[in-house]
Design a protein around this nucleic acid. Sequence first.
RNA 1: GGGCCGCUAGCUCAUCUGGUAGAGCAGGGGACUUUUAAUCCCAAGGUGCCGGGUUCGAGCCCCGGGCGGCCUACCA
Length: 484
Amino acid sequence: MTDPNTEYPPVPYRFDVTHTAAAVAAEHPDLEPGTETDQTVTVAGRMMLRRDQGKIAFGTLQDSSGRIQLFATSKLTEEFEGFTSLSIGDWIAVTGIVMATRRGELSVRVDQFTVLANARRPFPDKWHGISDPDVRYRQRYVDLWVSDDARDAFQKRSEIVAAIRSRLSDQQFVEVETPMLHPIPGGATARPFTTHHNALDTELYLRIAPELYLKRLVVGGMERVFEIGRVFRNEGMSTRHNPEFTMLELYWAYADYAQMMELVEKLIEGVALDVTGSTKIQYDEREIDFAAPWRRATMDELIMEHAGVEVSLDTPREELVALCERFGVEVRDSYGPGKLILEIYEKTTEAQLWGPIYVTDYPQEVSPLSRAHRDKPGYTERFEGIVAGRELLNAFSELLDPAEQLARFEDQEAEKAAGDEEAMVVDSDYLRALDYGLPPTAGLGVGIDRLVMLLTGTTTIRDVILFPTLRAESPTLDPSAADE
RNA sequence: GGGCCGCUAGCUCAUCUGGUAGAGCAGGGGACUUUUAAUCCCAAGGUGCCGGGUUCGAGCCCCGGGCGGCCUACCA
């Protein structure tokens, strides 16, 4: 308020708060208008509104639990003048009795107040808030105060992750942390971020998936293991993609993909119940019901349903190529029938699936880590969970055999050589781990951000990531760096 | 990456076919003893994203750049 280096009055180092706004309301649900209790409380938060009325003043205090009205009077409030000169956005602590005004609004009477921090910049419009999404994402510290939706979404995100942990823990799954810096990027087909370790003088990659490390842990005897963590993919951004996002990956020894379907649908049904109180949610003006069991259908069946064409790995390649041309899919020479079918599915079918639905039996060609289907040659025991036209999760019976895994890796390397920058490379330590023996195992990956989007009704991934990736605010003005 | 759209006061928005920028809120000053986005009065607040061009004159038209949004493409 004066010299910024010598705040006056001095800001305390610690302040003992007795109640949140919500706690005050919970303890006094039915206070009659115009009554004063004999309970003195101390609350703290930001002053979001103030209404001066001469010798009295009203304020709205907001904390992480909600809002409560403050009532100050020139008679009873110490430093009443100071109270009426607070700025919107100032952090204050208030001590006083709990009361209800004549209009019946539950309030804390301001007997004393202490400034905990000044808002030196003006807060956004108290009614309209911030509408510019760029400002909301860059200055989330303001957005969180000003938009209830943002606060609610991140509160719910925390509850969703907690519910997942709790439910998995109840089923004896052990949470682990595996490396984010990988010498070989693996576990998914995606382009990695590259970095350099100086002491080792070696390239390292930010992980694109924890998969191969988690399966090493199953080899090591961790029969039920999961990780919730950030993964990084150097690819496009959109309302559904952020370069870093959060994935749940889970591995379950002795189980197959059919059991995994049951585990996941129950997990997500349960999380929806825990967090929203119902298995049914509204999303994009339509209903989604997460109640188990979810529908299961093979990719080939669904292509028949939505594109009206019959395809399978037995379909001659020329026919598949002709279908791709008909549906506007770009075909490369390296594409085998499996890749062509997947392309047809993604072009014609996936976005039409409202779900939740399990799309099962992916071609082996596009599933380099999945175990071959026990009955259908060329297919794998893999499924994706599709909700609202988008992939929410991906799972399969894991490929166990090191020789076959090596062959699949080599196929991937051939595709990489043919120009596919997302194709995998051989991970020989992973093959060595498989040599020690991976038991039958089912594995799962769930996009947590997308799950949060569904359960919070948001259609932009940036609304569920506190600090989404953005272009640098002040581009480097060095003209020598202005190439490209 | 491609297409379309946007950028005006701290925030939310106006400014007709080009004529030299205006309101609410916030911030400052004042009035007010029960308000709920309080109300009322006063004053202040602008590199119109940046850089060029056309024009007597550009926030508005043209070109280039920056940042963002939506759609599209790849992916979760």
